[in-house]
Nucleic acid binder design. Structure first.
Length: 305
DNA sequence: GTTGAGCGTT
């Protein structure tokens, strides 16, 4: 069969373009997508009805009787159906805090309850073969990854954390993490996880021990983390301040002075959620203010008046 | 008392 031209348009009403076929009479999908980005196939009218063309891996095959004089137009994938390129992909996950005795079999057995595993490693000293107390796993399904992140894991009698590793930037923790300042000792990691869980899935909470007046909260979704920055929130009666988490190493005198002075003019956004959650526990004399039944942004809670 | 523990021999 020799090369011929097939008349193709994007939609039935659009201007057609002639596309060259291959020697075997087929039309390469790449030839089609060069003109119609995102097209996944071709169809045509046959006796008033739509008829689809057979598709192999990389090419569209002509109708049984040949291309003929038909006018073809493109089929497009439904945008709301996740495809391989659209669906979030699993990343390697680091498992921190493994007991020294725990080996791959135990790790695999434990995490298999979340979903199929593509990889399990326990890192060991090359000389002694002793576990370094951490390892890596990878799930086949993103849902399983979501389920495993965002909670702690009791493995061989020890609490372990699952996180997205530092090295593989791209979904790095940097933009997903917020700094929570002005914490009091009464705020536990569980308190913070529960409170911030209402804004989006929390994948990690860090509360320094011994006590320091701050914490870190990491979200799965960077947009959630970024949206909270700059706000004050009231958690169990404690007014905390949320800001961006600066990278661990580079600290040198946070050159935020300019940013802070610029922000001062704007009214602070102050939230308390859930509205009455903290009223049932011990709280300060300032609780007399009945701010807490107001919608989140209706009335700021001013700790110092 | 407002910036964190630990991160991958191939």
């Amino acid at each position: 069969m020799s090369i011929e031209y097939v008349v193709v348009s994007e939609g039935e009403q659009d201007e057609p373009i002639e596309l060259p076929t291959e020697e075997d009479g087929s039309l390469l999908l790449s030839t089609i997508s060069a003109q119609f980005v995102g097209a996944s196939g071709l169809k045509y009218r046959a006796g008033g009805r739509l008829r689809g063309l057979r598709l192999t891996e990389d090419r569209v095959l002509p109708p049984a009787e040949g291309w003929g004089a038909h006018r073809y137009f493109c089929a497009f994938p439904r945008v709301d159906i996740p495809t391989a390129t659209t669906r979030p992909r699993c990343s390697d996950l680091i498992v921190l805090g493994l007991p020294w005795k725990t080996g791959e079999e135990t790790v695999r057995e434990y995490f298999s309850t979340f979903g199929d595993l593509l990889m399990v490693q326990v890192k060991r000293d090359t000389k002694t073969g002793l576990s370094k107390g951490f390892g890596f796993i990878k799930f086949a399904e993103y849902d399983a990854q979501l389920r495993a992140l965002g909670r702690r894991h009791m493995i061989d009698g020890r609490w372990c954390d699952v996180r997205i590793p530092n090295s593989k930037d791209g979904s790095s923790a940097a933009h997903r993490k917020v700094f929570v300042g002005r914490c009091t000792e009464s705020l536990t990691a569980d308190d913070l996880r529960e409170y911030f869980g209402a804004f989006g899935q929390v994948t990690d909470v860090f509360v320094p021990k011994p006590f320091r007046a701050f914490s870190f909260v990491t979200f799965l979704d960077p947009e959630v983390a970024q949206s909270l920055c700059g706000q004050d929130h009231v958690i169990k009666g404690v007014s905390v301040n949320i800001s961006t988490a600066s990278p661990k190493r580079e600290h040198s005198g946070r050159s935020q002075l300019l940013g802070w002075s610029l922000l001062e003019g704007a009214a602070p956004r102050v939230y308390s959620w859930p509205p009455d959650a903290w009223q049932h526990s011990a709280h300060s004399a300032h609780s007399a203010h009945s701010h807490s039944t107001a919608p989140p942004d209706a009335k700021p809670y001013l700790k110092y008046e």
